[in-house]
Design a protein around this nucleic acid. Structure first.
Length: 857
RNA sequence: GGGCGCGUAGCUCAGUUGGUUAGAGCGCUACGUUGACAUCGUAGAGGUCACAAGUUCGACUCUUGUCGCGCCCA
């Protein structure tokens, strides 16, 4: 056997293990193994945005614990890794690092900067993930901007385009004025803030009482195309069909009835603008209202508006022009203040109310959104809500209630998925628009064989460069990461495939692990793509992790200053304890970062080291060839009752841990393992067996039995803990099983999980063994109450009750004497005056007659 | 407004289909070290299981309602 180092050095072990795993390609997916053993994980490619946070550590470790279990259990695990290194978050990182603005730079120059900056940040992830011991298959590492990823992503585009599921439309679009790009509904966040509801009268053409409307966005008055009134409104009969005159612009607009107006809100009458919100779009379409764009792509008021033309008449063109000039170039918020002053000067504000209003903002920039009309590429989702929901129900959600989040998101969808972004650094939309006479504007897409294409540089087949205009917009990063399974199988459909055979084998995948805040993005989009491409689900199971909270249970955020640097965390505690902390949390539940639990992990590593060291010391004394608990019991190599007892409890633990893991309840597995290791093995079995590990020369049967058992328990416990604390377990596994100069195979290899068939009978010697431990506990209590050492000598230990001791605890009298340091044990009446205590289960009462104190020194 | 999750010891959390006396770790108290471990061990104190009603022989567990916290959706 190898020599056992006295102390465990985590840093050394981490480096040694990583080197060995990498060299041995320990986590490489085995293409030659039978496909039915495949277990494929759709790993989240982390967004390269410059920040490593504890959330990464938490979420990715949860997935790795599961991955390691499945691999050890015999599955051929494919656990890929990639980096999502393009799109807005990456652009922002580059802008910050290089102190530039992408929007004001030449595209090629900016993209070059991106490619320069990214590698360093990817390396930070690589280092973190390596340190965390993520058992990914590094040979399949990918980037979402690589040629191959771009090919697959553009294949996805082509497939949807050919199927009519993806189209370019000129229509009202969610717009982030800060980043100056279209965004999707998933990138909208609704924040609540204090707003002001302004009551503004609109004169009615031909006289009569003005129509009073309430609005939070008076700066959009110029965009007003109609007043909308509920048909049941008291003034509906009087006003519908008449025209109202917009204040300041004097534009006559029709008053129309629509029962979608909320009669309870404001005055029950609203102005419909192009566009203030989603209902405006609906009214604009239903009532065929004019499109009046007053805000530009930067979120500023237009410099000029064609008011006074036939399409946009005004009763006071000069007044309107003056208003336009006064507001021109102001951002929406400033314009709002300005127009309110103008209205106020003219006495046109009847009332102002302070309200809580919900304002949609762009999640990333925080800017209040505008809805403006631009040409964008949309993937059709609204028509497929039912199909998407149905696919969601085919997937197993862990925990189950997370499906609810998915469903409420899908049910609340109001927009098709806009995938074009007015940005520089992303996967190109593979399209050109023809300039050829007679087919101007015709959409041209490449052949599959031409991919990947960059339409700003490349030219489609059959066209001259000056005959086409290449699309300059790029794709939403989610449009690419939503095919993360296909980026790994390198195929979309049979026609659009780089490796269709592998795709058929690996897709749909086994597991998608991810955090809950990206259900509406990543999970949703991936499900949409799988549905549109192949009418299937992307994975059988989705495991949702919670958030990592600060140790006081609050959300970690930069503004609170409670963000923990994951690298510092790993430096402070070591990777195994950090993983242990993760392992105590359940899927779906948010977990506070707990120094207690982290320290517990540290203690566990030390304890495990020492427990195996004890076994190793015993095993060094004699060469044995253990087979398995079951085989060694059957062959008689393991014969001692307490050995059979501990192996029975171990068998029970293996079953519990296995069942829990199969249900993705790894925290329950960890608890079961912990209970066994700490309470049964260390606190009791090791103490009991010590006497039989001290011998000189050839071991007798009891000693041999102890050695075999110590090997099996240590070996099995190391395997059980392996998914959680991979470094110390692999180090210990090698010390137990490797020979001098010959390392053992890694404990993390396929098939290394303890097999149920190898385990002992769970009930073997169960009653007697439990009674033994309970009597031992009572004896310890007596000594504790006497305030003497556990090693204090006992003259007689008496267990209350009739019958032979052997009936109670089997043939283990010698062990009981040894572990309690008693010269004699007996059953029957407790001796008068002897100190005694009851066992925890109150089944036994135990008295100790202490030996007279030995000669003082 | 609709939905989901949570509320158990001072703290962080377990508690399997309802079943004796509700558990663990930390913290606290007392004691204990010459042969795995003081980064330890043994023992102890500590809980009206948020609250209320109901179902039941029996409720931390099931039902309904209330309160508080967090989140998702609108």
């Amino acid at each position: 056997m190898k020599a056992f180092p006295n102390k465990y050095k985590p840093a050394t072990a981490e480096a040694a293990c990583n080197e060995r795993w990498l060299k041995d390609e320990a986590f490489k997916w085995d293409e030659a193994a039978p496909p039915e053993t495949d277990y494929v994980i759709d790993t989240p490619p982390p967004t390269v945005s410059g920040t490593l946070h504890v959330g990464h550590v938490y979420s990715y470790t949860q997935a790795d614990i599961v991955a390691r279990y499945f691999r050890m259990s015999g599955r051929n695990v494919l656990y890929p890794i990639g980096w999502d290194d393009n799109g807005l978050p990456t652009e922002r990182l580059v802008e910050k690092v290089k102190k530039v603005r992408g929007g004001t730079m030449a595209r090629e120059e900016f993209v070059a900067l991106c490619r320069e900056v990214i590698p360093e940040y990817e390396q930070q992830f690589r280092d973190l993930f390596t340190r965390l011991a993520l058992s990914v298959d590094w040979s399949r590492e990918y980037q979402t901007i690589s040629d191959e990823s771009r090919t697959v992503s553009q294949m996805s585009f082509l497939d949807l385009y050919r199927k009519g599921l993806l189209e370019r439309r000129m229509e009202p679009t969610l717009w982030d004025p800060a980043d100056r790009t279209a965004i999707a509904q998933a990138e909208v966040e609704e924040i609540e803030r204090e707003g002001r509801l302004n009551y503004i009268p609109f004169q009615i053409e031909g006289g009569g009482d003005p129509a009073l409307i309430a609005t939070t966005r008076p700066e959009l008055i110029a965009a007003c195309g109609a007043l909308i009134i509920h048909p049941e409104h008291p003034r509906a009969k009087e006003l519908v069909g008449k025209r109202a005159i917009t204040p300041l612009y004097a534009v006559p607009v029709p008053v129309v009835a629509d029962d979608t107006v909320d009669p309870e809100k404001g005055t029950g009458m609203v102005m419909c603008c192009t566009f203030g919100d989603v209902t405006d779009i609906q009214w604009y379409r239903t009532h065929k209202l004019p499109l009046r764009v007053v805000i530009d792509q930067a979120g500023k008021m237009a410099q000029d508006l064609p008011i006074g033309t036939d399409d946009w008449p005004s009763l006071d063109v000069d007044g309107a022009k003056a208003t336009i000039a006064a507001l021109a170039g102001l951002k929406a918020e400033k314009a709002k203040q300005a127009i309110l002053e103008m209205l106020s000067e003219r006495g046109l504000i009847e009332k102002q109310e302070t309200t809580r209003q919900v304002v949609p903002v762009a999640e990333r920039s925080g800017a209040p959104l505008e809805i403006i009309v631009t040409p964008q590429w949309f993937i059709r989702t609204l028509d497929f809500k039912d199909a998407i929901l149905a696919k969601g129900r085919e997937i197993e959600w862990k925990p189950e209630y997370m499906r609810q989040r998915f469903e409420s998101w899908v049910e609340g969808l109001k927009w098709d998925w806009s995938i074009s972004r007015q940005r520089h650094f992303g996967v190109a939309l593979p399209v050109w628009y023809s300039r050829r006479p007679g087919e101007e504007g015709k959409v041209i897409v490449p052949e599959a064989s031409e991919l990947p294409v960059d339409p700003t540089v490349d030219t489609p087949k059959g066209y001259q460069p000056d005959e086409v205009e290449g699309e300059r917009d790029v794709m939403d990063t989610w449009a690419t990461s939503s095919v993360s399974p296909q980026l790994n199988t390198r195929s979309i459909t049979e026609e659009l495939a780089l490796d269709w055979q592998t795709h058929q084998r690996l897709f749909p995948m086994s597991l998608r692990p991810q955090a809950h805040e990206i259900i509406r993005t990543w999970a949703f989009y991936t499900i949409v793509k799988a549905l549109h491409h192949q009418q299937t689900i992307p994975w059988k199971t989705i495991a949702i992790s919670g958030w990592c909270l600060a140790s006081d249970g609050s959300k970690m955020s930069k503004s609170k200053g409670n963000v923990i640097d994951p690298v510092k965390l790993l430096d402070e505690y070591g990777a195994d304890p950090v993983r242990y902390w993760t392992g105590t949390s359940r899927l779906g539940h948010d977990t506070a970062l707990s120094p207690n639990t982290l320290n517990q992990g540290k203690r566990l590593v030390t304890k495990l080291w020492n427990a195996v060291k004890l076994a190793h010391m015993a095993l060094e004394q004699a060469g044995i060839t253990p087979v398995s608990p079951r085989a060694d019991i059957e062959s008689g190599a393991i014969s001692h009752p307490m050995d059979r007892w501990v192996l029975g409890r171990l068998a029970e633990t293996v079953k519990k841990a296995t069942d829990s893991f199969e249900a993705y309840e790894y925290a329950a597995a960890l608890r079961a393992i912990e209970d066994f290791f700490w309470r049964i093995h260390c606190d009791n079995y090791l103490e009991i067996v010590k006497a039989r590990t001290r011998f000189e020369g050839e071991p007798d049967a009891g000693q041999l039995s102890a050695l075999h058992t110590l090997h099996h328990v240590s070996d099995t416990v190391v395997r059980l803990y392996a998914p959680f604390i991979p470094y110390v377990t692999d180090t210990l596994f090698d010390l137990l099983n490797g020979a001098e100069g010959a390392d053992a195979k890694t404990v993390h290899a396929r098939g290394m999980w303890p097999k149920a068939d190898d385990q002992a009978d769970a009930d073997g010697f169960r009653t007697e063994g439990d009674a033994f431990v309970s009597i031992l506990g009572a004896a310890r209590k007596v000594k504790s109450e006497l305030q003497v050492s556990m090693r204090a000598e006992v003259e007689t230990l008496t267990v209350q009750g009739a019958g032979a001791l052997a009936d109670l605890i089997g043939d283990t009298e010698a062990d009981l004497k040894a572990v309690t340091n008693a010269a004699a044990v007996a059953t029957g009446d407790l001796p008068d005056g002897a100190p005694s205590a009851s066992s925890a289960d109150e089944k036994h009462r135990v008295a100790l007659v202490m030996a007279p104190p030995s000669q003082e020194e």
